[in-house]
Amino acid sequence: MQEYERKQLLERVEREGATVGADIPETITVQGEEIDLRMFVFEIKRRETVPPGERDRVERAKKNLRRERNDRIERIEEDEISREKGEELAGSIIGIDRALNALESLGPTDLEREQQAQQAADRKRWMSFLQKALGRDDDGPTRRGR
């Protein structure tokens, strides 16, 4: 592969909209292990939030995908590969990016923290309502009737 072809491939995978219209690979080999990536991503995405038991699995998958992405970029940058192999690697990197984008865009993963925040907001609204109903301003004295 010529140096200018290598640079073109690297620019292609780093382009802002590179994942637009890209498919998540059906399967991908990450550190010697074949993963059904598309099925994994769709399985996780169909839920509104990541259940507590799945959080570690999702975080591990994202970490491994990032590592694999970096390894593949390094192969394009440094290895003596053919143009065809470079194209294949670039396509797989874009697919990995697509999968990472899907996994990163998941809803809140900490249900307990979300529940606590909602309860705090409910208490605040209730206290505000009570203060208005009792005729009190924010920390001010009680208003006397007519």
Rank of each mutant, 00 (worst) to 15 (best):
V58P: 04
D79W: 15
L9D: 00
R143G: 02
V13C: 02
M127G: 12
R143K: 10
S82I: 02
S92E: 10
K7R: 08
A102C: 13
R12F: 01
I35M: 06
R125K: 15
R60E: 09
E59Y: 08
I28A: 10
L106D: 07
R67Q: 02
P25M: 11
L65A: 04
E114C: 08
D138M: 09
G86L: 08
T49S: 15
R38M: 10
K124F: 11
N101R: 14
G107C: 02
Q8E: 03
R12K: 11
P141H: 01
R83W: 06
R55D: 06
R66F: 02
D71I: 05
A90H: 05
L111Q: 12
G86F: 07
I44F: 07
E114H: 07
E54S: 13
E112G: 06
M1E: 12
R66L: 03
R113G: 04
D110L: 05
K62E: 01
R146Q: 03
E68F: 02
I96V: 07
V30T: 05
D56T: 13
D97L: 05
E43V: 09
L106V: 15
T29Q: 10
T49C: 11
R57F: 07
K124L: 14
V58K: 06
S92Q: 14
K85W: 04
R46V: 01
P51V: 13
